[in-house]
């Protein structure tokens, strides 16, 4: 049994009118605008899923795409557990089908970075949202941005028909205590890596999430910003 603690927050930032990011934790869909992180804790041997999705602003209905993705992934949790890449592929096809059937949703697309916690911890990722592994003094990016050198995305869920999606999947073997950071590009594109390294490793998940979003705001928050600080313990490692 594992104990999972997630501090989640998402915000439209200081420039954008709306928030096309979506965050879901344990099936709970975070509101579009939050001023403080929410701390959720679960001790379970069942699989749990944390997803950060960033609807693409240049496409129509980005906020619909990101919400559709996180909801669909949670709804299909058993499929995600069985084969995360295939589950992402189904969401991609469903988004394409939705875009083809309704003109207002044409080409809608989203990034998605999901952290699945079972006996092992699995990351599944498409786009330029990111997942980091964090410990004091050491932060390493676990996902690879699906971008061209100019910054254009090379892979998204949804988008124009005919494009294949090949999610990045990697497993992290279990350990006594692990800290992950999931975030949209509203954080990592504007906040210095050294700041991320320092703030993400704060002892409290809640404090880390709040500090990171504040750093994004201090950097002007030109984009929507979403942060999930996920801490996983083997049961018994920590008592609240």
């Amino acid at each position: 049994m594992k104990r999972v603690e997630v501090a989640a927050i998402t915000s439209r930032g200081l420039v954008r009118a709306g928030n096309e990011d979506r965050v879901s934790v344990f099936g709970w869909l975070a509101p579009r605008e939050m001023t403080e992180p929410v701390l959720l804790t679960r001790a379970t041997s069942e699989p749990v899923l944390v997803v950060v999705a960033d609807g693409l602003g240049g496409h129509q209905a980005g906020e619909v795409a990101s919400e559709f993705a996180v909801t669909a992934l949670h709804t299909a949790l058993p499929d995600v557990v069985a084969d995360p890449a295939q589950a992402f592929g189904r969401v991609h096809e469903d988004l394409l089908a939705l875009g083809a059937s309704q003109p207002e949703f044409e080409s809608m697309a989203t990034t998605a970075t999901a952290l699945l916690i079972t006996d092992v911890i699995t990351l599944c990722h498409v786009g330029d949202s990111r997942a980091y592994y964090v410990e004091p003094g050491f932060v390493t990016q676990l996902t690879t941005d699906h971008t061209e050198p100019g910054g254009a995305l090379t892979q998204v869920l949804g988008g124009r028909p005919g494009r294949e999606v090949v999610p990045q999947v990697r497993e992290v073997d279990s350990a006594d205590c692990l800290r992950f950071l999931l975030c949209s590009d509203g954080l990592h594109s504007y906040v210095d890596a050294a700041v991320v390294r320092e703030e993400a490793a704060l002892e409290s998940s809640f404090g880390a999430a709040r500090a990171l979003v504040r750093a994004a705001f201090e950097a002007g928050a030109p984009d929507n910003v979403s942060v999930c600080v996920v801490t996983v313990w083997l049961e018994g490692e920590r008592d609240d």
């Binding site: 592994y133 003094g137 050491f138 676990l142 350990a175």
Partner: peptide, 9 residues
Amino acid sequence: DVLRLRGAT
């Protein structure tokens, strides 16, 4: 895989 250096401290 730099995660091989995880928990090194």
